[in-house]
Design a protein around this nucleic acid. Structure first.
Length: 378
DNA sequence: AACCCGTGGAT
DNA sequence: TATCCAAGGGT
């Protein structure tokens, strides 16, 4: 069966719907949305700051996960000006546990841009919004349409899935070039009177009747427009290539304790968990074939050199801590050291009296380490 | 273009 | 348990 769209064809000539059908689609979608829209904390108004914070948090993150973070973030940073004035450490602490921490740093950067470069005046077009840190094609379209009533598509995973099914589009949505295909289509479908509601309705549709797993396309408000339903191919869309498995990396995690507390090291300002705080790690890859006792001696030597202070490390006898990121799985073997409170002149590090009550932003993997250590002490 | 960047829920 | 995935952006 031929698809309505193929990878190298122009969308303009392939939208087979009549103007009448397009209007009927908009009405079916928006009527359903008006009666069934989710009540979400960032939907109480169309304030661009509220939209921006919610959209950044919602990138690759589920709605239910975001809600409490959004509430706390708004309480801590009620306005763009407040966010711009805050230290990055406070912003990261508010983001702690939400993941993809570059989003928090970009959001902070965008707030500073708005205050410093734009005099607090928001750009109101998608192209203008794209100049702000952390705002890509999706988020620019979302803010432009929701906050500024611009007829811009907001093409997230929901929109890809919804329109791939409605039109049986088999282009691979993981390929950047495919976005243009969908954008050309959605620009013709979007309701020029209510673009923000149109985009949000597509998202609500994509998280309910047209969800990825266990959809209920037959009862969707746009079932009559759904070519994949008509051809019984709903689950064939969208087409996407699979992700690679995360690679395993082994480290020693150093639980170094002194009268001043536990030692936490700040991660580098780029890369994984940038600027967050974590017990010092020592890579084991170069030593994997050596006996454990030898590895511990080598790890102590390496860390002592880094810290400018000699420590003696011991196996803690605690369970291996595993933590999986998008592209890596860490396997952490905890080593312990009891030491005096040496000066931290050579490490971006701090002594913290309590691992569970600190103003430093801790990634989830550190919380797993903390839990393993506390259970070992109990 | 291909790869990097977190986390928790669902199955 | 393993896998997928959820309102993507940066480089």
């Amino acid at each position: 069966m031929p698809n309505y769209f193929s990878y190298n064809q122009s969308m303009t000539t392939l939208l087979t719907w009549s103007p009448t059908k397009i209007k009927a689609f908009r009405q079916a979608l928006l009527t359903w949305y008006d009666a069934n829209r989710r009540n979400l904390p960032w939907r109480v108004d169309h304030d661009p700051y509220h939209v921006m914070v919610s959209e950044l948090m919602l990138q690759q993150t589920q709605v239910n996960t975001v809600i409490p973070y959004y509430q706390r973030f708004m309480a801590a940073f009620p306005t763009v000006a407040a966010l711009a004035a805050a230290p990055e450490s406070a912003v990261l602490k508010a983001w702690e546990g939400l993941g993809y921490y570059s989003r928090a740093r970009n959001l902070h950067r965008a707030a500073k841009q708005l205050m410093a470069d734009y005099g607090g005046q928001w750009p109101t077009t998608a192209a203008g919004l794209r100049e702000l840190a952390g705002i890509g094609p999706y988020t620019a379209g979302a803010i432009a349409s929701i906050a500024f009533n611009q007829p811009e598509p907001a093409i997230d995973g929901n929109a890809f899935r919804v329109f791939a099914r409605l039109f049986c589009i088999d282009a691979d949505i993981t390929k950047p070039a495919t976005r243009q295909l969908f954008a050309d289509l959605i620009r013709q479908l979007i309701d020029p009177q209510r673009p923000g509601d149109f985009n949000q309705a597509v998202m609500d549709l994509g998280s309910s009747y047209m969800r990825a797993k266990d959809p209920d396309a037959a009862h969707s408000p746009v079932a009559a427009f759904d070519e994949s339903l008509r051809t019984d191919t709903v689950l064939a869309y969208p087409v996407k290539t699979k992700k690679a498995k995360p690679q395993v990396v082994q480290y020693f995690a150093l639980a170094i304790h002194s009268p001043a507390g536990w030692l936490l090291e700040q991660r580098p300002s780029t890369g994984l968990l940038a600027n967050l705080w974590l017990m010092p790690l020592v890579a084991r890859a170069a030593w994997v074939k050596q006996p454990l006792a030898e590895q511990i001696t080598l790890a102590a030597a390496e860390f002592s050199q880094r810290a400018g202070h000699t420590v003696t490390l011991r196996a803690a006898g605690l369970p291996l801590v595993r933590h999986t990121f998008t592209h890596r799985q860490w396997q952490l073997t905890i080593l312990t050291a009891e030491t005096k409170a040496f000066a931290l002149d050579f490490l971006p590090a701090q002594w913290v009296p309590s691992l569970s009550a600190t103003n430093l932003a801790l990634p989830t993997v550190q919380k797993k380490l903390t839990q393993a250590i506390q259970e070992g002490q109990a």
